[in-house]
């Protein structure tokens, strides 16, 4: 050919436009916003007034040690395990990823943009929950703030790990939502989503605590109480992230 053809990959501006487009897609999917932002707020408001009077330890209330860690975990888990995979499954099914594959953009760009938007969505959900808890029910910040932030990041990574597995195995958008819901409720039930786990057999309690949902609630609770975080919980979250990434890497299909 007479003129050399330059290899081109989309630059930073294209990434921003892509993230903006993903954000619009998520924001316009009103139903998809109710679960990660509305549901945790509802649980918080329902249980906050009694839990905020109940001192558990170190002058900390049940709201700070049990309810908030649970509510924040729900925000992160619903976004990562239910919402993100359903978008990816829709994109794959409808051929949107295929269409992008014939442009200089790569489908990986869509995946990254989805993660960025999910993180923003999660931060909004967490901020809303914390604002309501502190303004209306006098909840205080975690005793170990830095630990809490570190645990947040690890929990997000772990929940996206689970979400990527869901996206990888779900053949259709419908089944992605179904599998995501089942995964969310299974992890949640064992992790204290439906109240105390005292009623569960001991073995299930242990397993639940080791799974990412339970580990997240325990680790965030410890950060709030100012207690040392148990390494087992952090290992569980780290391992979920690695396994999720690896499974998705092997199984995920673009079409």
């Amino acid at each position: 050919m007479s003129t050399a053809i330059k290899a081109g990959r989309p630059g930073p501006r294209a990434w921003l436009v892509m993230i903006g487009c993903e954000a619009k897609m998520v924001a316009r999917d009103t139903a998809g916003l109710i679960v990660p932002i509305g549901l945790p707020l509802l649980i918080l408001v329902m249980s906050a007034s009694s839990a905020s009077d109940q001192i558990v330890a170190n002058g900390r209330t049940a709201l700070e040690l049990y309810v908030l860690p649970l509510v924040l975990t729900i925000v992160i888990a619903t976004t990562g395990i239910i919402n993100m995979p359903s978008f990816l499954a829709y994109y794959r099914r409808s051929g949107i990823l295929r269409r992008l594959a014939v442009t200089p953009a790569s489908p990986v760009m869509v995946l990254m943009a989805q993660v960025v938007v999910s993180v923003i969505q999660t931060v909004i959900g967490i901020t809303a929950a914390l604002a309501v808890a502190s303004l209306a029910f006098d909840a205080g910040p975690p005793t170990h703030l830095a630990t809490a932030l570190g645990v947040f990041v690890l929990v997000m990574a772990a929940m996206y790990g689970v979400g990527l597995i869901v996206a990888a195995v779900a053949p259709t958008p419908n089944s992605a939502v179904a599998i995501g819901l089942v995964a969310f409720f299974a992890l949640g039930a064992l992790g204290g989503l439906f109240g105390g786990r005292d009623a569960l057999p001991d073995a299930l309690v242990t397993v639940g605590e080791w799974l990412p949902f339970g580990a997240s609630v325990e680790a965030l609770g410890a950060a709030w109480a100012g207690a040392p975080t148990e390494p087992a919980h952090l290992v569980s979250l780290g391992a979920t992230t690695v396994v999720g990434g690896a499974v998705a890497g092997i199984l995920f299909r673009w079409e």
Binding site: I5, A7, I96, R98, P104
Partner: peptide
């Protein structure tokens, strides 16, 4: 990366 810059494609199923 080079071909995508110079080839436009309209797909039937997308």
């Amino acid at each position: 990366a080079q071909v995508r810059q110079v080839l436009g494609v309209q797909l039937q199923e997308a």
